[in-house]
Design a protein around this nucleic acid. Structure first.
Length: 426
RNA sequence: GUGGCUAUAGCUCAGGGGUAGAGCAUCGGAUUGUGAUUCCGAGGGUCGUCGGUUCGAUACCGACUAGCCACCCCA
């Protein structure tokens, strides 16, 4: 016996029952993005590894151990399945001079890849929806993006997602704060735990996120990034807050909110929930004014966010349960040699008129076909036997209520079916 | 990458050193061409894979694979 082949670890099939929910989400997202003037962009799943190394940061965990990279045997190039789409989007914008005629609002949706151990809400192939506002200095567009998120939660009926905000300031301010922070932490080096000591070397801002209660006094007295922000950065941050307040959107300022990627500056934000176990971040984003230059383009301000589709769907299910599948109008039952052929005429005629028709294939007894018709969820069974075929007619039997079956000539069938499907029972 | 737990029918699970069970689902039947309810019947599993212990393993042990949960980290 041949061995069965299963899906690659951490990569999931989305089966039809679930895919229905994905389709609904995609419809909502499309019109939501359109409502804010964002246009779709589709970049390749595969990029040169160098793009992510340069964009995301050499010492981040993503680049160090989580990228799904491999060598193209054709030419020895190192390629990487995209771990996120911002770098690709900016690369595309630079490559095609998208900002030449002014700023661009873009959105994308699609699979991303990370080579880490799978767990709930965190897979090797996962899906993100994101929006990027390229060429806008903010803070107006920062607020727009955040309000946009809030509307999506609303459109999807999700509750209990909280907004956390912070400002990382300008790179120079960040560096000054980082130096002060490192000095502070080094003074208390003896009291730090192993994790924090490691982070002190790699990513000192992360020490502020430590969940170890013993470190609380050290964290509380640590120099705050906010205190190192210059007038311009503060004005940006306050401008953003003012717009959110005007919009009546509640937020928390989290001084310890630091995004994992190197390219962020000024505004950073996350939408978090406590309903998803350890994977509490549903959406994260921030400003990355330096990224264009970093990957070799002309400098341009930009901000964006990405949200995890798997987590989002978990919340949708949590909020309202699964969506009922869209029922088919007609299940076409047929029996007899002449009827089997005439059934195709009937089916195509109905589709000409816009009806959705599941045509029974594979034979089987009449009873079995009726059972299938019922189980399919279709509204109507359209029945073609040799009697009907000889008369050029079809019988329509409502499956979801007790209205009687009616027999109609082929030409009268579409109208008759419409009446049965859409007539008010009242 | 690290640790803990798990793997028996399509699904949810029970069982237990002597070669397998339930519920649900599926399929068929209850006179000729009428579904969902009811009744009757059937099919379906090398008990995740490979190896070890044993007269004998699905059960005990190990490795591997996969899943779940957490850590690291992170959208």
């Amino acid at each position: 016996m041949t061995q069965t082949i299963q899906a690659v670890r951490g990569m999931n099939d989305i089966l039809p029952d679930d895919a229905a929910l994905w389709e609904r989400l995609e419809e909502v997202v499309r019109s939501w993005a359109h409502a804010y003037g964002y246009r779709n962009i589709r970049t390749p799943l595969l990029e040169h590894t160098a793009l992510f190394r340069r964009a995301i940061g050499e010492t981040t965990d993503i680049v160090e151990k989580e990228m799904y990279s491999f060598v193209d045997e054709l030419n020895g190039e190192s390629l990487t399945l995209r771990p996120e789409a911002t770098a690709s989007t900016v690369r595309a914008a630079v490559e095609h001079s998208l900002l030449h005629h002014g700023p661009q609002r873009l959105w994308y949706a699609g699979p991303m890849f990370r080579h880490e151990r799978p767990q709930k809400g965190r897979y090797r192939q996962f899906h993100q929806i994101g929006a990027e506002a390229l060429g806008f200095p903010g803070p107006d567009v920062d607020a727009e993006l955040i309000l946009m998120c809030a509307r999506l939660w609303d459109d999807l009926g999700i509750e209990g997602v909280r907004l956390q905000l912070n400002s990382l300031g300008a790179p120079a301010e960040r560096r000054a704060h980082r130096a002060a922070l490192v000095a502070h932490l080094e003074r208390h080096a003896d009291d730090l735990d192993a994790d924090s000591r490691r982070r002190l070397a790699t990513n000192p801002l992360r020490v502020l996120d430590s969940k170890n209660p013993a470190l609380r006094p050290i964290i509380a007295t640590a120099p705050k990034l906010l205190d190192h922000l210059g007038a311009e950065s503060l004005r940006h941050f306050e401008g953003l807050q003012a717009i959110l307040q005007d919009a009546g959107l509640p937020f928390e300022i989290d001084h310890h909110l630091v995004r994992g990627l190197d390219y962020y500056n000024l505004t950073v934000f996350e939408w978090v929930t406590d309903r998803l176990g350890a994977q509490g971040t549903v959406c994260g984003g921030g400003r990355y004014d330096g990224l264009f230059e970093q990957i070799g383009g002309k400098p341009a301000p930009a901000i964006g966010f990405a949200l995890g589709v798997e987590r989002l769907l978990a919340l949708v299910l949590d909020a309202g349960g699964p969506v009922p599948p869209t029922p088919q109008d007609v299940y076409l039952v047929h029996q007899g040699d002449a009827a089997d052929r005439f059934a195709f005429v009937v089916a195509e005629r109905l589709r000409d008129h816009g009806f959705s028709v599941a045509h029974h294939c594979g034979g089987g007894s009449f009873k079995a076909q009726m059972r299938r018709a019922n189980a399919s969820g279709a509204q109507m069974a359209v029945i073609v036997g040799d009697d009907e075929a000889a008369a050029g007619a079809a019988s329509v039997k409502p499956l979801r209520d007790e209205r009687p079956q009616v027999r109609l000539p082929l030409d009268a069938l579409p109208d008759g079916l419409s009446q049965l499907l859409y007539a008010d029972d009242s």
